[in-house]
Design a protein around this nucleic acid. Sequence first.
DNA 1: CGACTCGTTGACTCTCTTCAAGGATAGTGG
DNA 2: CCACTATCCTTGAAGAGAGTCAACGAGTCG
Lengths: 245, 245
Amino acid sequence: MAPFDSGKSNWKSTMLLDASCRQCDIRETAFCKGVPEQELARLETIAAFLDINPGETIINEADPAEFIFNVTGGAMKLYKLMPDGRRQITGFLFSGSFLGVSDHSEYAYTAEALTSTTLCRFPRKQFENLLAEFPSIGQRMVSILMDDLAGAQSQMLLLGRKTARERVASFLILLASRTKKTEVEPTLLPIPMNRVDIADFLGLTIETVSRTLTGLKKDGIISIPDGGHIKILERDELASIAEHL
Amino acid sequence: MAPFDSGKSNWKSTMLLDASCRQCDIRETAFCKGVPEQELARLETIAAFLDINPGETIINEADPAEFIFNVTGGAMKLYKLMPDGRRQITGFLFSGSFLGVSDHSEYAYTAEALTSTTLCRFPRKQFENLLAEFPSIGQRMVSILMDDLAGAQSQMLLLGRKTARERVASFLILLASRTKKTEVEPTLLPIPMNRVDIADFLGLTIETVSRTLTGLKKDGIISIPDGGHIKILERDELASIAEHL
DNA sequence: CGACTCGTTGACTCTCTTCAAGGATAGTGG
DNA sequence: CCACTATCCTTGAAGAGAGTCAACGAGTCG
């Protein structure tokens, strides 16, 4: 079995893997897409490949921003904490997501693995030099960051103005839009995060999330086979709740 | 008087001005900072310079994203609307801010002038070509977008988890941090937006904003000489309320 | 002066939170 | 195999913070 074979690994956590850019699963979606084939070697010389376990953090809010990361497999959550423990999850990341955005020289959030996750890592300084050398990376980065920003703005609307029911519906639609490989309806949606994470993402409590899901279930819009899955029965109705159409 | 002299203009709104990049006030902070002096002419050939009045919008949510903008003077607000009229202001922009971020090919928000505002405008396509030519623009853009994203994440924490008092305190601290040219305390803070805008930015109602400001006044933390100004009397205490330290 | 906008204040309502208890499932060890 | 424990989710009852509805004061403008 090749050393970069992903999936259920039993390596020690945060182990550096012997992977490569050429064989990367997400070459076509990641920021490095624009790098010419023959230059990939350059990229690899500064890249490190990591594998981390659920619950582990790779960066911490307010730590010096030494690295930037790219998620190549698995899922992560980003969050900000208040001194008294209140938490806001600012986003969930999946394959292809970029990570390590910082305000000046410190990370603006903590990043923690939701599942077993693989990443590639670049020293920040050297990565910035790459931008000067490969303008296409800059273009790609700008595009990714703009999408992230648009997502953040949608989330602000959700957090500032939507009701609990609208928030939960929006969340399910968001998850479903990510996993629409299988176009068949109704969609059985895997939920990789627990209720606490959902609540902290939606600016609610776990009780409200639970009650709201129960409400959607009673209305025949979703069904909940188990905690880790939700089946969307009436997607149009769910979407109209989410956007209040 | 030179035609690009900003300030209280009586030109027809959205008028194209005869300005130039060389004489731009914000050359050192804007995204175009990295463009070599001798290449500015190139930039100018695709740039247009606008002057708009308070209340006018330059872009509308869901319109095709044909242009990107740079605020060279004045102030703007960005917001998203729900069909039933609920509004979330996602940010206030001042001189040097970049604008026109889009999700794919549509604007993700509406941008409206708060005061008389001057902007420079670039066709999106041609701007993207510039990125390929001047990597420094890409670097600058990446840096600006990262800062915007960090700001958006802080705002998500505010909207998702902070109390009304904490939100208002955070808002005042945010405004004050922008206007800290005069380092003298207590700071007399000009408030260029009205209560409705503040409420829609903080995810509150105008009544709650008003009551909360009154509360802070009663506690001797601020004073309110008039609706358009707030004097911060106890900045440290305000900051500790904002961050719950 | 009256009409209008904007901000403040009061009384009441309501959505979501808090506090508390109980059910479901999985893992552990005797 | 079955307590025992731990974690996660659900449900109920009560409470609080912010929203809603309404009135009023201050400033502005024609």
